Simulated scan of single mutants.
Amino acid sequence: MYTTIDYSNNSKEKYKQLSAQLDALVSGEPNVYANLSNASALLNQFFDRINWVGFYLMDGEELVLGPFQGLPACIRIPLGRGVCGTVAQSKEGLVVPDVNAFPGHIACDAASRSEIVVPLIKNGEVFGVLDIDSPELNRFTEEDLTGLMQLAAVLMKHI
Rank of each mutant, 00 (worst) to 15 (best):
T3M: 13
T4K: 15
Y7L: 11
Y7C: 01
N10Y: 02
K12N: 09
K14A: 00
Y15C: 02
K16V: 00
Q17R: 00
S19T: 11
Q21F: 02
D23I: 01
E29R: 05
E29L: 02
E29D: 06
P30W: 00
V32F: 08
Y33V: 01
A34H: 08
N35F: 05
S37C: 03
N38P: 00
A41P: 02
L42F: 07
F46G: 03
F47Q: 01
D48W: 02
R49T: 08
I50L: 07
N51T: 06
N51E: 10
N51P: 09
G54K: 11
F55I: 10
F55T: 10
L57T: 15
L57M: 15
L57Y: 08
E61T: 14
E62I: 01
E62C: 12
V64Y: 06
V64L: 09
L65T: 12
G66I: 11
G66H: 10
P67R: 08
P67M: 06
C74K: 14
P78S: 13
P78W: 02
P78H: 09
G80M: 05
R81M: 11
R81V: 04
G82I: 11
V83W: 08
V83E: 09
C84G: 06
C84K: 06
C84F: 06
T86D: 01
T86S: 11
V87Y: 01
V87W: 02
V87H: 01
V87S: 01
Q89S: 10
S90V: 00
K91C: 03
G93S: 07
V96K: 08
V96I: 13
D98T: 08
V99P: 10
N100Y: 14
A101E: 12
G104E: 07
G104W: 07
H105K: 09
H105V: 09
H105Y: 15
I106N: 12
C108K: 12
A110C: 04
S112D: 07
R113V: 05
V117T: 15
V117C: 14
V118Q: 03
P119H: 02
L120S: 07
I121M: 12
K122M: 09
G124K: 11
G124C: 11
V126F: 06
L137I: 09
L137N: 06
N138D: 15
N138G: 00
F140N: 03
T141Q: 03
T141S: 15
E142G: 02
E142W: 00
E142L: 11
E143P: 04
D144S: 00
L145M: 11
G147H: 03
G147Y: 02
L148D: 04
L148Y: 04
M149V: 04
Q150N: 12
Q150A: 11
Q150F: 01
L151V: 01
L151N: 01
A152W: 02
A153Q: 09
V154N: 02
K157G: 00
K157F: 00
I159C: 13
I159G: 09
I159W: 08
